[in-house]
């Protein structure tokens, strides 16, 4: 159920990308999408009252796996945040350059390309 809420967040971001005319708002929509996914990934690894994911000496691996929080999604989210940071920096730079060329942030006025 809570996963569906993350997907709602992704849907809001997708709406922003598809429906907005301002390039900066499109970038924000894209980032909201990514945040929804990061939240989804974190929730996949979450376990209520879970133990910290460090195996004690002499602990049975099966017993360990049944109580510990899954540490992998956190690593994935960290990687994914770095990637979305890179995309964000590139997109913001593109927006600035577009403003320099067109004098507007409105995507409907940027139509050199067609066909």
């Amino acid at each position: 159920m809570i996963y569906a809420l993350c997907l709602v967040l992704v849907g809001i971001g997708l709406y922003g990308v598809l429906a907005k005319k301002n390039v900066v708002k499109i970038v924000i929509g894209l980032m909201i999408m990514e945040y929804g996914i990061h939240l989804l990934l974190i929730l996949i690894g979450y376990r209520r009252n879970g133990a910290f994911p460090i195996m004690q000496p002499g602990q049975d691996p099966g017993a360990y796996a049944s109580v510990a929080v899954d540490p992998l999604p956190q690593a994935l989210v960290l990687t994914s945040i770095v990637i979305s940071l890179g995309v964000l920096a590139l997109l913001v730079a593109l927006c600035l350059r577009l403003y320099e060329k067109y004098g507007t942030f409105d995507i409907s006025e940027m139509r050199r390309l067609r066909g």
Binding site: V10, G13, I26, M33, L90
Partner: peptide, 9 residues
């Protein structure tokens, strides 16, 4: 970049 970002998501 925007469409590629959506695809990656």
């Amino acid at each position: 970049a925007v469409l590629g970002g959506v695809a990656s998501s």
